[in-house]
Amino acid sequence: MDIIVTLKQVPDPEAPKETFRIDESGMKILNPPNIDPVINGYDENAIEAALQLKEAAGGKVVAVSMGETGATRALKQAMAMGVDEGILLQDESFADADAASTAYVLARAIEKIGSYGLILCGRQASDWDQSQVPSGIAELLGLPSVTAVQKVALQGDTVRVERILEDGYEVLDIHGPCVVTVSNEANKPRYPTLKGIMTAGKKQIPVWDAAELGVDAAQVGSAGALTRVSKLYVPSFDGDCEFIAGETPEEMGANLALRLRELKII
């Protein structure tokens, strides 16, 4: 079965927290200087799931990412891990997309790729954590979707998944093409191998722009966004220490309880 994996580059979550920056007026998260963005962690789980399915049942794995030129590094890394092909979706008009307009471009690209039995995505992206794009893709392509799975397996053309619930998991069988989002419980992504890195380094990554995809300009990037960020800020956590007085530990405890009730904390 041929599998398509969607990838997103995000600011490196391992970067020192003091390097975190936002552009409050532009409503953007800024990538820290000199620290390369990385593949979203859940997307690596999706890649690993796809590669395991390929190893078990054959087929081809294609990774697709909408992003700037730097996203080719994410696609190369996926290919170094074992993904067969990478495709970059890039156009000036794709900038400042929200989940809806991102899903639209990815859906059009998936239609253009054509051959697939399964679309795997990360359960969410670690920058905005919205978990909207995969469901958007499924909606636009008219496909069933299952979110946040901890296991995905193939039985012929049937995709069997374990969907994580609050108190356990449920097993679902999905027939035909579908969208599945993979959670970190599913696997431990493999390291790229040296041979994989060298092979991927020699491969060309096709770039599909708006014209190539034949997309409606009104539905991509900021033009196609259905949501608007009204305020973006780094919350401040101010600490204030108040000592509770009392003659004895018991009295201090009682006074503490009274003070907490006064503050409506208990």
Binding site: D36, T72, R73, K76, Q77, A80, Y191, P192, L194, I197, M198, A200, G201
Partner: peptide
Amino acid sequence: DDERLTRDT
């Protein structure tokens, strides 16, 4: 890029 990816891996 390949050198960096190898190092990071």
